[in-house]
Write a protein that binds this DNA or RNA. Structure first.
Ligand SMILES: [Mn+2]
Ligand SMILES: [Mn+2]
Ligand SMILES: [Mn+2]
Ligand SMILES: [Mn+2]
Lengths: 219, 219
DNA sequence: AAAAATATTTAAGTAAGCTTAAATTTAAAG
DNA sequence: CTTTAAATTTAAGCTTACTTAAATATTTTT
């Protein structure tokens, strides 16, 4: 399958997972940087290939086959991120940028070699789960968004769900890193902001950030 | 530039290097598995982009810009081959196959990271030189084809110039490997065959093979 | 040097993956 | 409930990278 198709099914898959906005052509178009018309065309074409279900004006739904393809691409993306992160001195933003391209030129054979070399990791450097060779995600995600945490509790950062360089730069600057510990010192629920303590620094995050930073409670 | 264009200029570059057949659209078409008409079309298009000189019925000649692009792709190809060969248990044929794709999705930034990690190697696992970041090949090639060697002399294998799985399988089976030592026991010049001694085995090679196995004299 | 074979070029056409503009449908506001 | 706004779809058209078939040029053979 082509790069355009792989990116398309992946975008649908990820949009579904985040249940942010509904999975209609317009939203997928926005993510991929193409026109709404192009997204509609593509959706219709992929329906004939049994990769998704398409009904006029309705949400796009991946078929089993489409989901499998998306997970296969996601697996390769996250394996590359893991490899590049371990081997070279590259930032979260950089490994994502390179992996976005490499994911489409990677045989299953090579993906398995990478996985094996890394000890078949279950998570990538962002904390995102890596599907196995069968396209299954076997880990159970117990983490919650920082926006849903309890004042006074202590948490461990489990995922930074973003592709954005500015966000990663901010995280790097403030010690917001996979595995690090934070204390939620205050929830300003009305203004949707969260105050946290990390590395002895107090910082205030708005919901743009607290919705994409995921954490786990400490036992 | 597109994958098609990168593969095209690379094919011209490599055809020139091997000075086997002349660099006309038909021969390039054969290497790329496309029609002659497609190759002519592409050649004309690349001429408008100042990547090569095109004159009807004449040989294709890369411009400086075209050569630079080809060398940039070759660099990425050979760096990937070097990395995959070192890290994973992959054969010469396998690393070539994967690198043929990865070479087109690799930023200069990542290529430099790979190079640095490997200690800026000057040769890939086939013995082919790796252009530097400026697109220059600084090493001088003193090796000669096995077909041009002297009876009775001892040589060290320096290059296996092929992409072919069967050839590599044959090499692996018979110890024909970069850096290994051989003795040329007999040259059958009339029949264009060469008898060599390697690992205490005597084997007879025809010109298909003696033209792509390169060696250096032992001091 | 002419005929035959081969290679190259031109011409016409296709599929993928886009675009913009107009038409249609759905969702939101008043 | 009606009007307005927003999203989706359709229509028409473009570029890239190919194809096959026919025309033309070059090379080889006789
Ligand atoms: Mn990523
Ligand atoms: Mn991608
Ligand atoms: Mn190679
Ligand atoms: Mn290639």
């Amino acid at each position: 399958m082509s790069i355009a198709i792989e990116n398309f099914v992946k975008a649908i898959y990820k949009n579904d997972k985040n249940n942010s906005n509904d999975t209609k052509p317009g939203n997928i178009a926005k993510k991929l940087g193409i026109s709404n018309a192009a997204a509609t065309d593509m959706a219709k074409k992929l329906a004939t290939k049994d990769l998704l279900h398409y009904e006029k004006y309705q949400e796009l739904k991946l078929t089993k086959k489409g989901t499998k393809m998306a997970l296969n691409v996601v697996r390769k993306h996250r394996l590359w991120e893991s490899l590049l992160f371990r081997m070279f001195d590259m930032s979260l933003h950089e490994i994502h940028r390179e992996s976005e391209l490499l994911e489409h030129q990677t045989s299953d054979f090579l993906a398995n070699k990478i996985s094996e070399y890394l000890g078949n990791p279950k998570f990538d450097p962002h904390g995102d789960p890596i599907p196995n060779a069968q396209g299954e995600i076997t880990t159970k995600d117990t983490s919650i968004a920082l926006s849903n945490t309890q004042e006074g509790n202590t948490y461990i950062i489990s995922r930074l769900m973003s592709d954005d360089k500015e966000f990663f730069d901010f995280c790097a600057l403030n010690g917001l890193k996979y595995g690090n510990t934070i204390v939620v010192t205050k929830q300003f629920s009305k203004n949707k902001m969260t105050q946290i303590l990390i590395n002895n620094n107090t910082i205030l995050l708005n919901e743009d950030f607290t919705n994409i930073i995921y954490v786990n409670e400490t036992n």
